[in-house]
Design a protein around this nucleic acid. Structure first.
Lengths: 130, 130
DNA sequence: TGAATAAATAGTAATAGTTACTATTATTAT
DNA sequence: ATAATAATAGTAACTATTACTATTTATTCA
């Protein structure tokens, strides 16, 4: 993969923001540094950076969101306002049935999605160890 | 909320399928029983049923998917084929760094989203206990 | 250096999942 | 039954995302 200035700035700006912007929201941010950047360039590079694991693609709420923080952490999605919060609590620490009113978050449930390669798509990989 | 035949069949059909269909996919399924049903009706009712917690809205992969099984369970998203699998393993059981080649699933990571009400939106609720 | 190459981009059009709208139909209460 | 109104069918509109193409730009190698 070849170096590109737009890609460098896209990653840089994503790492700066604490929220989890959608592609088009990040486009608006990046446009402040690169007024002529194209929306497609942002999306294309977000997909690239996701594949390289330089950014995290979050499927939560309604649209794809991107997170420049690739370290393992959870999120909290409010069913009312649809905001996506960073959430440091580990899944196993939380009694999901209880409304954690003390913390201010009323946790109604959780959903864990593992990701990687399924048996079909991981076949080539499996071959390496055989 | 008033009874409606379409809604009854939408829920019934969703509970039948083992996969996690998108709204439009479920529409195709329901059309076999109700040929005149409208796509908007399927989406509207999926949103309703989600609010009532009769179905689970899954944000994983790329589009909204719906799960008739509201019991607590995880999913596995393949980054290659984008299929979403049911996954019985509990988050805490899995060493995410290891490729679980024995099981056939190569787990590269996980993402947990808690859901409920954030401090702002849960204010009314908090008032009850004060 | 400086062409040759091919990857990446800008700008735009197209795609597709989802929602909004409106006239009509169907459910419920009186 | 009849009134009130929630839900629907059908369609149009919306919007996040992707595809396409001519152009620009980074890299290679003579």
């Amino acid at each position: 993969m070849r170096y590109s200035k737009p890609r460098e700035i896209i990653l840089e700006e994503l790492k700066k923001v604490k929220t989890h912007p959608r592609g088009d929201e990040l486009y608006q941010i990046v446009r402040r540094s690169l007024p002529n950047i194209s929306l497609g360039t942002v999306y294309r590079n977000l997909n690239l950076l996701t594949q390289q694991r330089n950014v995290l693609e979050l499927f939560a709420g309604d649209f794809n969101r991107y997170d420049g923080n690739t370290s393992d952490h959870s999120h909290f999605l409010c069913r009312e306002c649809r905001r996506l919060w960073d959430f440091s609590m580990e899944p196993q620490e939380v009694d999901e049935k209880a409304c954690e009113l003390g913390e201010g978050f009323c946790i109604e449930g959780r959903h864990t999605v593992f990701h990687g390669l399924c048996p079909d798509c991981g076949k080539g990989l499996k071959g390496l160890s055989e």
